[in-house]
Design a protein around this nucleic acid. Structure first.
Lengths: 234, 234
DNA sequence: GGGTTTGGTGTGAAAATGACAATAAGTGCT
DNA sequence: AGCACTTATTGTCATTTTCACACCAAACCC
């Protein structure tokens, strides 16, 4: 949420979007935050967001925020929940619609927007106190991600197009944070039995050990299977 | 959404809540609709809803709409999705937050609000073309209900406090609309094995056949079990 | 008391889950 | 070349869950 200058007087009521942008680099699950340049909450970390323009659809606004920050278009975006407590914004009545987006962290280049200079990936459990009610928003989006990653093939949105099964498993491990880690053999059996992954001819490169096979997610096949009643489940 | 009279000039942007109120009477799943008294969409059926007051939380607004229409308080209410297409409302920019509520249909008495005179239960598949984007909203809420009814014990919200297992099964059948009906023996085994139902001493009365045992849902137990890691699943 | 209607119950086959460990294929170093 | 090191890859078995399926019981009505 940006609340600069001249909009002050406009603040009787307004709506905004806030975007919880998730990324994964092989370690922890990450979220992209920006450091606010202005009051209120100057210097605090916050979710990237903006007011919705008068002639802009909500989804469009969320896409715009994402593109301005990351330069990315056409990535996974999902509306999660709307936050509208009367006093959630100190300057007026602003309700905000929270979105999740999932991006391939390697695609992200910190170049695009004016506010991008202060954008930074944070490990999901090294996020401190955020501006506004953004901690609450983040919690909701994280819960949603945890559920959805098991029931729809959206984990792949966080990985490069070609990935190893170990990378995929690590992704699930770090999103789900189950008390016990997933079992390697059972995980591979399950994911391969869905027939949604196609083996690439190439292998992993540049590792100091036996290289793994690379796989790709076949979204066309997934579409077919869904039509036939298939339900993704991990 | 109510858009009467003097608010016309206020319409640059506003937010509203719309409430998809579900009920069940043993037959089909029902939804409570009102017939609009004013333009736009005069005489069309619509979801009950209203603008959110300046000092009112979103949830509070949804509770208010529900109470004004049904006289009920403290019933199940869940935010589902926010609809904000630029032209979804002909008179201005209005984004609306959609809620589901689940009520015990026998508790509903058509007395409360001014607009209640034109409220009526509709079978879920005898809903025609609704005002605004309300068909789309209804679809979203119905999908949500179908998912959630399997993963949380919210079906009971639609039944009287004491119910038979057959009633419960019919509820699931009419919400889920699976290609094959649920199997009686398997359903009873599953639901009873959760230990969430307590058998009442009373029996069903006034039926022209063998009366069934009545059960109650034990929400305290459910709370305990959840703390111990239990996940409701049907 | 016979007919009708719904309530209530158990078993077995098939599938899914979950625990578990040994060999294979590379790299880096000597 | 050989060895140490690291990660990749694969199958079995016991347990649990799922799913299909049919008959007697208990109440009412006449």
């Amino acid at each position: 949420m940006d609340t600069t200058g001249e909009v002050g007087s406009f603040f009787k009521s307004a709506f905004s979007v806030d975007n919880v942008i998730f990324g994964f680099d092989g370690g922890d699950l990450k979220v992209l935050l920006i450091q606010r340049g202005q009051s209120p909450f100057k210097d605090k970390w916050a979710l990237p967001g903006d007011l919705v323009y008068p002639n802009e659809d909500l989804n469009t606004a969320a896409e715009r925020v994402l593109e301005q920050l990351t330069g990315l278009r056409g990535v996974y975006l999902e509306q999660v929940k709307t936050f509208g407590a009367v006093n959630r914004h100190p300057l007026g009545r602003v309700i905000t619609v929270a979105y999740i987006s999932l991006i391939k962290i390697s695609n992200y280049t910190l170049t695009a927007a004016s506010f991008a200079q202060s954008a930074k990936w944070h490990s999901i459990d090294e996020v401190g106190h955020l501006a506004f009610d953004h901690n609450e928003i983040l919690e909701s989006c994280l819960r949603r991600l945890k559920r959805k990653v098991r029931t729809a093939p959206i984990g792949f949105e966080l990985l490069p197009p070609k990935f190893t099964l170990t990378e995929l498993q690590q992704l699930y491990d770090s999103v789900l944070r189950l008390p016990k880690h997933l079992d390697k053999r059972n995980f591979r059996k399950k994911i391969l039995s869905m027939n949604l992954l196609v083996e690439c001819s190439e292998m992993q490169e540049g590792v100091a050990h036996r290289p793994a096979k690379l796989y790709q997610f076949d979204s066309d096949k997934y579409g077919q299977f869904v039509n036939e009643g298939f339900i993704f489940d991990i």
